[in-house]
Design a protein around this nucleic acid. Sequence first.
DNA 1: CTATTTAGTGTAGTTGAGACACTAACAATA
DNA 2: TATTGTTAGTGTCTCAACTACACTAAATAG
Lengths: 225, 225
Amino acid sequence: MSTKQFCYRHPHPAVSTDIVLFTLRAEKLQLLLIRRRNPPFQGGWALPGGFLDMDEDLADCAKRELEEETGIKNVYLEQLYTFGKPGRDPRERVISVAHYALIASDRITLKPASDATEAAWFAFDELPELAFDHREIVEKAHERLVAKLDYSTIAFQFMPKQFTLSELQNVYETIRAEALDKRNFRKWILARNLVEATGLERRNGSHRPAQLFHFKRPGRVEIIR
Amino acid sequence: MSTKQFCYRHPHPAVSTDIVLFTLRAEKLQLLLIRRRNPPFQGGWALPGGFLDMDEDLADCAKRELEEETGIKNVYLEQLYTFGKPGRDPRERVISVAHYALIASDRITLKPASDATEAAWFAFDELPELAFDHREIVEKAHERLVAKLDYSTIAFQFMPKQFTLSELQNVYETIRAEALDKRNFRKWILARNLVEATGLERRNGSHRPAQLFHFKRPGRVEIIR
DNA sequence: CTATTTAGTGTAGTTGAGACACTAACAATA
DNA sequence: TATTGTTAGTGTCTCAACTACACTAAATAG
C-alpha cells in the first residue's frame, strides 16, 4: 500500500455514496445488504456503497460500487438525499450521497460471494440491525418509493419486459401493503395509457390464461396524474 | 494565514452548501445572489454558500453561510439536491449540497454590504449569468417549489404573520404564473382548514377592507391533500 | 353623493375514485 | 367427457372534488 498523502489547506470530509437497491421477490419488497468485512461494524449488515473517486460523478460512483459489490448493473437509479451528520461514521467525517435503485425481479441474481463481499436480499419488514445511519437511509428511500408509486411510472422498473395486469397490481399492493380492487386498478392503469397488450398470453396453472402487456416507454420514469 | 495542512491517505473532495433563497417582492418571485469577490467568476453573481466546517451538520452550514453573507436567519430551509459533477468548480473537486430556503417578504432586508459581500435580490425570470452550475441549481429549486405548492403548506412560508386571502392567492398565482379563480381558491384553502380569521381587517385604499387571517400552525410545513 | 376599487359569496355541471359480483377460460382429475 | 378449482376479465352507480361563472358589499377620494 502506498504511503502517498493527499493534503489540503482546509480540512475535507470524505464523500461516499450508499445505495438502497429494492426489488420484489416472493411477493415481498426486498433490499440488498452487504456484510461488512472491516471495522467499524465488522460482520454487520450495511448498504452497498463506497467512496467517491475524484473523477467520477456521484451517480457513477453509486453504479460502480453496486456493480463491484454485487455484479448488478443497468438499474434504475436516482439520488435520494445526502446524509452528513458529524459522527455518523466513527472513523472520520463522511458525507454520504444516498441513492436508491430498483431492479426487476428477473434480474436479481447476485454474483457469487467473493472473498471481499457477501451480499444478500432481505425483506424490507424483516431487516437486521444496520451499520452507521443506514436504517435512516432505508426509511427515507422507502418513503420516496411509496410516494413515487402514486405519481410516476416507477413501478414498471420492477417488472420484467412482459407482465400480466395481475402481476402489476401485485407490485402496487405489495409496496403499498394494501389490497386493491381489481376492476378499479385495471381501469386506472389502462386510462393512463402506459401499457399495451402484446397479443401473447401467459398460461401458468389450471385456469384461464392472462394477456401479456408491456410498458409503452420502457426505461423512462415519467410523472403521471 | 496558517500553513497547516490537512492530509489524508485518499483524495477527498471539498464539500460546500449553496442556498437558493426565494421570496416574493413586488408581485414577483425573487431570489438572492451574492457578488463574488474572488476568482473564479470574480465579480459575477452566484448563490450564497460556502464550505462545510468539520463539526457542523449540512443544514447548519447552509444557515451559517446565509447569515454570514446576508444577515438573514431563521428561514425555512430544506435540502434540495447534491451537485458533484467533476469540473463544476475549476479550482478543485467540490461537492455542493444545495438547499433551498423561503422567507416572508416582510423580513427580506439585507445587512449593509460589507467589504466581503454584496448581496441583492433578482427576479427569477430576469436572472443574470450565474457562476459555476448555479443556474442548474436554481432551476431545480424552482421545480421543487412549484411542485410543493400543490401538496404542502410551503406557500405560508412566504406570508407575514397576518395576511388577507387575496394576498395568499397572489402568492399562488405568482409562483404558478397563472391566474386562479377567486371563489374556487377561497373554497379550496378554507376547506383545508389551514387558516383562521383573526377578526382584524386591513384597510388599504379606497375600497372594502379585507379580513386578516393567520396560519393555524405556523413554522410547520405540512403535506396536504 | 357618485365613482372607483377590492372583498366577498353560491350553484350547477363535470370528472374521477371507490364500492361492488358475476362470467370466461383453462387444466387437472374423476 | 363432465366436474371442479382457480385465476382472468368486465360495468354501473354513488359520492366527492374541481371547474366555470357574475353579482353585491364596503370602503375612500373627489
